[in-house]
Write a protein that binds this DNA or RNA. Structure first.
Lengths: 106, 106
DNA sequence: TTAATATGCAACCAAATGGTTGCATGTCAA
DNA sequence: TTGACATGCAACCATTTGGTTGCATATTAA
């Protein structure tokens, strides 16, 4: 569940589309997910494997079917640990700009 | 400045390292950024081009030097428009779990 | 002006990536 | 049990990616 795996998993538009699909209806099977795309089942399988490897989705075996569930924890970790860092940087920059403006037009 | 370009730009660990370097010291030149890695200048140039293409960094030409500045806007947009969506989903899931627990142990 | 410095451009290469087809395995239902 | 259905595995292919080397251009400083 390395951060790099999550970034790489999110890098592909098809995989983000799969996540969107699961967000729309959680717990879909492989075939259900396939019906929403125009590629082969095997291609979807590979993408799902990458998403599962990154721990972005979790699967539950149910007889001959396999249900796929979103796991938003890694995405939130990225948001908090990595993106948040740059967000704070931006807020600081904005704050600095504000102070500068206040100084320049009293 | 498509969202896909930003995701792809963030997918590579080397590029995230470059962003980290700029977060540490904003406005570095190409050579300055090179000194913090172990690859060739040309490789760094390519990565910077991808980051610039995704609008994650902005450059300012200064004589024969080129300064690189972070632009956190696209990253924040991703955080708000895309990651936020899954975060809300998670909160809802937690809320549902809470309600279920409340029902099960009165 | 000339030498050193900072960056840009292009060709080339190995490896990773995204996708396909074909076949195998496992499970449900008649 | 047998056929239909859901998924898994493996080989293969084209393109992209990350990186290199070599040379070109532009700017600063002596």
């Amino acid at each position: 569940m390395s951060m790099d795996a999550v970034f790489r998993a999110l890098a592909d538009p098809t995989r983000r589309q799969l996540l969107d699909s699961l967000h729309d209806r959680n717990g879909q099977t492989l075939n259900a997910l396939c019906e929403r795309t125009d590629m082969t089942r095997q291609a979807v399988t590979k993408h799902l494997a990458i998403l599962e490897e990154a721990n972005v989705i979790t699967t539950v075996r149910n007889g001959r079917e396999k249900e796929h569930y979103l796991n938003s924890v890694p995405i939130n970790e990225i948001a908090e640990r990595w993106i948040g860092k740059f967000e704070r940087g931006r807020l600081t920059a904005l704050s600095d700009l504000k102070k500068r403006l206040e100084r320049e037009e009293p």
